[in-house]
């Protein structure tokens, strides 16, 4: 039986190995090979073409002394923390609301999740239009009589992150809601019965009993949201193009612009290696945590 026991020779079970070749190639050549390639070349002074001319850490020194990279990191940190907290909060709140045995649950869930089906480019373009200072929100509020009202995040370096947050959460919070709702539905009915018998208020039950029980669900959401935040690119391109000035630049855009726009590959490689390091810093503790609890993927 193929299921039992390891094969003795290389050619045993050869059809399965042949069928798994695309997976093996993807894992080894793309995921490991290409990542290592980029890491190695981040220590070179490649510009227009990749060259193996090692210059130590000088790409990284330049990277961290470039104002645009510093702004990108700062933006990612601010956006990341806000998006994570808000998405988790909104996701949990909406999941709790949807879990109240309401009418039209399917309808509400459909509405909350539909932006997730859209591309970030579509999302960015729509929010660019809604936040347009001459026609959008600011214009509407002003024409209602508040003529001094100013809300122009797309042209205000201090507020532009708000525009990214509004659009990003619009697109992504539905996913968190659905996962959390699934988590809430997975909680044993007996927990609720016990809480009811003890006369604990519903909201208290949610916060002090259900919330701690949802830790694994939160962990999954945090990993998913974080992975999305680090990759944040399309939305910025479509909504702000990094502007005004460099106020809404993000690391992924820095990488793309240096690799394909500025013909400065070394900088692009160094920046992308930093992104990889950031992801590993999130994934490895999570993976150890999961592996430590139970072995399954």
């Amino acid at each position: 039986m193929a299921r039992s026991g390891p094969p003795l020779r290389l050619f045993q079970n050869w059809q399965a190995k042949l069928a798994a070749t695309p997976m093996i190639l993807t894992a080894l050549v793309v995921f490991i090979g290409c990542s290592l390639w980029t890491v190695v070349y981040s220590f070179t002074n490649s510009r227009l073409l990749p060259r193996l001319d090692f210059v130590g850490l000088s790409q990284y020194e330049r990277l961290w002394s470039t104002p645009r990279w510093q702004v990108s990191i700062e933006n990612l940190a601010i956006y990341g923390i806000c998006a994570l907290v808000l998405t988790l909060a909104i996701g949990f709140l909406l999941a709790v609301l949807l879990d109240q045995k309401i009418r039209f649950e399917d309808g509400f869930r459909t509405i909350i999740l539909f932006p997730y089906a859209l591309s970030f480019i579509v999302t960015g373009v729509v929010w660019q239009w809604i936040l347009n200072p001459d026609f959008g929100l600011q214009h509407i509020v002003r024409s209602m009589g508040f003529s001094g009202f100013t809300f122009d995040p797309l042209n205000d370096p201090n507020l532009v992150i708000l525009a990214l947050l509004a659009a990003g959460i619009w697109q992504g919070a539905g996913l968190t809601t659905v996962i959390m709702l699934a988590g809430l539905r997975g909680i044993d009915e007996d927990v609720w019965k016990a809480a009811r018998v003890d006369g604990i208020a519903t909201w208290k039950t949610y916060i002090f009993i259900i919330l701690p029980m949802m830790k694994p669900v939160f962990a999954t959401c945090i990993v998913l949201i974080s992975a999305g935040i680090i990759k944040l690119y399309d939305l910025v391109v479509a909504l702000t193009r990094g502007g005004p000035g460099i106020a809404s630049e993000v690391p992924a855009k820095y990488v793309y612009d240096y690799m394909f726009g500025n013909q400065n590959l070394g900088q692009g490689f160094a920046a992308s290696t930093m992104m990889l390091a950031a992801v590993l810093a999130i994934i490895i503790p999570f993976a150890l945590f999961r592996l430590g609890r139970k072995r399954h993927v």
Partner: peptide, 11 residues
């Protein structure tokens, strides 16, 4: 989970 940016150029 690897950011695509790490792999785009070798590809």
């Amino acid at each position: 989970f690897i950011p695509y940016q790490v792999m785009i150029y070798p590809i």
